[in-house]
Amino acid sequence: MNGTIVLKMLLLVGALNTVSLASTADQLVVVVHKDNPINELTRSQLIDLYMGKYVAFPDGRRAQPIDIDNDSKLKEQFYLELVGMPLNRVNAYWSRVRFSGNARPPIQQGNQQAALQFLATTDSAITYIFASNITDDVKVVYQFDE
């Protein structure tokens, strides 16, 4: 009987570790080009960049935010975690701002790989991806809490 309980506990611990690893791999992170001098951004700074208030990193260098256009689940998760707004409200916000001519929305890329390719050749670019897609060409500057 004790052997069965121990085996069940080991299986449970293994299952929990697998769930933990899977959720870490799907954690949302914000990345920049590996040579970008910025090492960390605050949530407030990200909001300013992604909502068009600022067009530069804190050091004054131009910033080019990238949105993942064809993955609405990822984009929705990003904006919910960043500003607490569903995608339809973010889109409505950008429609108003674009009409006023005061700011430009982030550049659209079709998927995470396209965004990473753009970022690899553009040191001013910044984007969000799942942690499982981090490459040697990028540097994580912000991690969302799980």
Rank of each mutant, 00 (worst) to 15 (best):
S44Y: 09
N17S: 13
Y93H: 07
G101Y: 01
Y79K: 06
I47R: 04
W94I: 01
G14R: 03
L74Y: 09
Q77N: 15
L12Q: 03
N111A: 06
S20R: 14
V29Q: 00
F78C: 02
M51V: 09
V90H: 05
H33G: 15
T122F: 04
F118D: 05
L119Q: 00
N2F: 11
V83Y: 02
E146A: 09
F144M: 09
V13C: 12
T122W: 04
Q143T: 15
L80Y: 11
E76C: 10
L87V: 07
Q109L: 11
A56S: 15
N2K: 08
A15K: 05
I66V: 15
P86A: 00
L16C: 11
T121G: 09
S23T: 15
K73R: 11
M85W: 14
F144A: 02
I129R: 02
L12R: 07
G101D: 09
L41R: 00
M85G: 06
V13Q: 05
L46C: 08
E76L: 04
K34E: 12
V30S: 01
N88M: 11
V13Y: 09
T127E: 00
I126Y: 00
L28G: 08
I38M: 13
A22Y: 15
T4S: 11
P106F: 03
V6H: 05
P58L: 08
A131N: 15
T4N: 09
D59C: 03
P58E: 06
D26Q: 08
Q27L: 14
M9R: 14
V138K: 00
A63P: 13
A103S: 11
S44P: 00
K73V: 12
V31N: 10
Y142S: 03
L46A: 05
K75C: 08
I5P: 07
Q27W: 02
L116Q: 12
I68N: 03
L116W: 01
N2A: 06
V97T: 10
R98W: 01
L12H: 04
V6C: 03
I38C: 07
D136S: 07
R62T: 11
T24V: 10
K75A: 04
L82D: 02
L41Y: 06
L80Q: 13
V141C: 08
E76S: 15
M85Y: 10
M9L: 12
N133P: 00
R104Q: 07
T122E: 07
P105A: 14
S20N: 13
P106D: 01
Y93R: 00
K34A: 03
S23L: 14
V29A: 11
Y93E: 05
K139F: 06
S44N: 12
E76W: 00
V31D: 02
P106W: 01
T24D: 10
Y142K: 02
W94V: 04
L12Y: 00
L80A: 06
D136N: 10
L7R: 15
I66K: 03
N2I: 12
K139I: 04
N111W: 02
L16Q: 08
